[in-house]
């Protein structure tokens, strides 16, 4: 080992310890617990992969896993599209741009539980804002959270409202790194607006897009707070996300199975992040 590598290793060490202590250990700990029958009121015994077999046969779990995946897909798609548009607009120069940039970030600055409360009040059947507007214009009242589809869309909208600014700000940072000269060249070559976006902007900001995607997808897969507040998993259990599902087992005192569900969620999130990183080809982009 030459000196250079030794030094590099030394510099990485604090981060390594940090990752090990605060991230890896809890995951390993959860995995360890998931191998046990760890129910507070039953004798503790080692069951190996017993909890995992149970998970595969657990219909409710698969329903909630399905919901979580569809929810993540829908809300991340919406956030990426809306975030890109907002970022492109904010990247142009116009009056009060600074104020606009600050304002666009506001929903992200609001604690998510408070944001969820706000949306809960909007969706309220009797005095909610949505129905207030609807009654004023058409005389109708809709029970937004009453049907599976309605509850789903309401949650996607509430989640996107809060996190689109996050996507927008990351993409904005990426956009500012695109050399202006590229656009001028593209213009001279006769590329129109869309061609310029898809052939010039997108390839350059791709690593940033991937970063935003990773953050958002993992966050969306773990979604808990807005569902806990807005629907509580209803109607009829349709909107129970995987996090909410595992939380309910912790409340019961079944720590083993709750951990199993969490580990499964970790595996999904990890796989997704891994695929994104592969798709992003960071090594190439860095060259």
């Amino acid at each position: 080992m030459n000196r250079e590598i030794r030094e590099a290793f030394f510099f990485i060490l604090p981060l390594g310890i940090f990752v090990l202590l605060l991230m890896l250990l809890p995951v390993i700990g959860s995995f360890w617990i998931s191998l046990w029958q760890d129910v507070s009121f039953l004798p503790r015994k080692f069951t190996g992969l017993g909890n995992y077999f149970r998970l595969f046969k657990d219909f409710q779990f698969w329903q909630s896993a399905g919901f979580t995946l569809i929810f993540s897909f829908a809300s991340v798609t919406l956030e990426m599209v809306a975030g890109t548009i907002i970022a492109l607009v904010l990247n142009e120069s116009f009056r009060f741009r600074g104020i606009m940039r600050g304002t666009a970030l506001l929903p992200w600055a609001i604690p998510s539980v408070i944001g969820a409360r706000i949306w809960q009040l909007i969706y309220r059947y009797d005095y909610g804002l949505a129905n207030y507007v609807l009654r004023g214009t058409s005389g109708l009242s809709v029970n937004w959270l009453g049907s599976s589809g309605g509850a789903f869309l309401s949650l996607v909208l509430a989640d996107s409202w809060r996190t689109t600014p996050f996507v927008a700000i990351i993409l904005l940072a990426g956009l500012q790194s695109v050399p202006q000269g590229l656009y001028e060249q593209a213009k001279i070559d006769g590329a129109n607006l869309f061609q310029r976006f898809f052939k010039v902007t997108l390839p350059v900001i791709k690593p940033v897009v991937i970063v935003a995607l990773i953050f958002r997808t993992i966050d969306a897969l773990r979604v808990f707070d807005i569902i806990y507040v807005i629907t509580g998993g209803g109607p009829g259990g349709f909107t129970t996300s995987v996090s909410l599902y595992s939380y309910k087992y912790f409340l019961l005192g079944d720590f083993g199975y709750g951990s199993t569900v969490s580990i499964f969620l970790f595996i999904i999130a990890f796989t997704v992040a891994f695929l994104y990183i592969r798709a992003g080809r960071f090594r190439e982009a860095a060259l």
Partner: peptide, 23 residues
Amino acid sequence: SPYYTQVSELLQRYVNAAISGKI
């Protein structure tokens, strides 16, 4: 019973689904 919470979770889900008209 010690696992009442679990039973309650289940009842909440099915009773709610029934009164919402889903099943």
